[in-house]
């Protein structure tokens, strides 16, 4: 477990530095690239938690697709790319208060829920846990209990695409 703990703290440190880079960067493109570091760290944390499939979904969807959308959004809007405009505003202290509060609430919730629980990924019960993280187990849930939400996802994506087509044709 010691090795996992070391990896957890190294990844957590990288994620925190990346997150600070996102909010501190004067260049929005650099901020989006810092976000890649944070999301890759999250994917690695999922792997540490034996959620293998979720980790690769994080890589495919968030790093692969969402960051692409962010960069397109930056290119399409008149975002200050050169770093010549000041991106800072004077909301620093309210933001600090809100983020400390949020971290406190989430941390307290997690410690309350899993604080004394040790999850072992070896042995008979651990093997079961590893199976839960694999793609097949997720398919069992999606295609039996959650078929309707699954189809709703396609409607949502369809709506997003139709909206984008309508906006793109207006020019």
């Amino acid at each position: 477990m010691i090795v996992q703990n070391i990896f957890f703290w190294v990844l957590a440190l990288a994620m925190v530095l990346g997150a600070i880079g996102v909010v501190r960067s004067q260049n929005v493109v650099h901020a989006a690239l810092y976000l890649v570091v944070v999301m890759a760290g999250a994917a690695a944390q999922y792997i540490l938690l034996a959620a293998e499939f979720v980790a690769w979904v994080q890589v495919i969807i968030y790093i692969g697709a969402v960051i692409i959308l962010f960069l397109f959004g930056i290119m399409l809007t008149r975002a200050p790319m050169g770093g010549d405009t000041k991106l800072d505003n004077d909301q620093r202290w309210p933001a600090a208060v809100v983020s400390v509060f949020l971290a406190g609430v989430l941390g307290a919730l997690l410690i309350d829920a899993f604080g004394k629980k040790e999850i072992v990924i070896s042995g008979a019960k651990g093997e079961q846990l590893l199976q839960v993280g694999k793609a097949g187990h997720l398919a069992d849930s999606i295609f039996t209990a959650y078929v309707v939400p699954f189809e709703v996802v396609s409607i949502l994506l369809l709506a997003a695409l139709v909206g984008a087509v309508v906006i793109a044709r207006r020019d």
Partner: peptide, 18 residues
């Protein structure tokens, strides 16, 4: 500024990625 029509391609990519 890039043409907004590129956005449709980005969104198509996201759709089929999902």
């Amino acid at each position: 500024q890039s043409n907004v029509r590129y956005y449709v391609y980005a969104l198509l990519f996201v759709m089929f990625d999902v």
